[in-house]
Amino acid sequence: MKNLSISKYILMSAMAISTLSSCETTSNYEEELPSVANIAVTNQDFSTLEAAAVAGGVAVVLSNPNPGDVSGDYTVFAPTNDAFARLGLNENTLGALQKSFLTNTLLYHVSNGNLLNSAISADVSSTSALGIDRRFVTRDGDTYINGSKILATDVMASNGTVHVIDKVMIASGADIVQTAIALQTAQVFTAPELTYLVEAVLYADLAGALSASEGSPSFTVFAPTDQAFVDLGTALGLTFTKPEDIRQLPVEVVRSVLLNHVIANDGKFTSELSAGAVSPLGGDDLTLGAFTNGTLTVTGLGNSGEVANMVIPDVQTTNGIVHVIDRVLLPNL
């Protein structure tokens, strides 16, 4: 990981310090540091994060000492503008997210106390302000928190520490089925998504198998978007205009296709997946592409070489990890 010798971060932090105090004594150094929130305000690479913190109601919280920790500090994993852009979000499009989901997403990037780079390793986990653990992964000399690469570390603030990451982290706080339903019912995005997937799961009677229960396995699930199912209908010579249209297909076919998207491997983030063949519950191997820019492509045996791309990777649920993709993965039907 790179330390903050990167000139733009030093420059912007210095600007923030100068706006708060002109005192140059060493004894007052800690007081001169900007708050976590002010680091975002004064750095143009965090302008979307700043807007999200305001819209999500956490800007004031991160401007002050942490009342929930004896140190008074927070640790924040801060997504860059580019990280938000990967989800199609910027300062002007944050309204696509429900406020409650936005607030919870921001809190998922925050934890109590000071977690410095020196204490981060692959065998350590970190509990977020939501109470959900995030895990660290080491890959090819880089360190990831969940599926997000840590770009820079130990940006010191008056009320904690900031680490810079390249992807927004998402946790639903629910199991795989309830997460899909949340996306279907506009609890996440104001425009619902995964409506066809939820209908297909109900039609194929797989909701119970993909729901969390004590002792149940954890899965990696590739979840096709609504447009992916519409495209599938077109390819099959059918017209899908509403989720119920998926019932034009035989239930056995729908069940086989859905199981082709589920891997019983304890739930893997992109940082933990490698190129090659993986075996889904449906039986026919899927092929994962190279790990590139934090995502992997995936191809089903029946897709004639046409790959699916990850639209929203690394959604943490209570019983696995969901990667939203733009193509239905077909077995060898």
Rank of each mutant, 00 (worst) to 15 (best):
S5D: 15
S7D: 15
K8V: 14
M12F: 13
M12Y: 13
T25G: 05
N28I: 08
S35H: 04
V36F: 03
Q44R: 10
E50A: 13
V61G: 04
P65H: 09
S71F: 02
S71R: 09
G72Y: 08
Y74L: 07
T80Y: 07
L87V: 01
T103A: 14
L107D: 04
S118G: 02
V124L: 11
S126V: 15
S126M: 13
R135A: 10
K149Q: 15
V162L: 06
M169Y: 02
A171N: 08
G173H: 04
Q178G: 01
I181E: 13
L183Q: 05
Q184T: 11
T185P: 02
V188W: 04
E193C: 03
L197I: 08
L197E: 06
V198H: 10
Y203N: 11
A209M: 14
L210Q: 10
S218D: 09
V221H: 03
Q227G: 01
T234G: 09
T239S: 15
I246M: 00
V251Y: 00
E252S: 13
V254T: 08
H261W: 03
L273V: 14
S279K: 15
S279H: 07
L281D: 10
N293Y: 04
T295Q: 11
A308C: 08
M310T: 11
P313Q: 09
P313D: 07
V315K: 05
N319C: 02
L330N: 02
L333P: 07
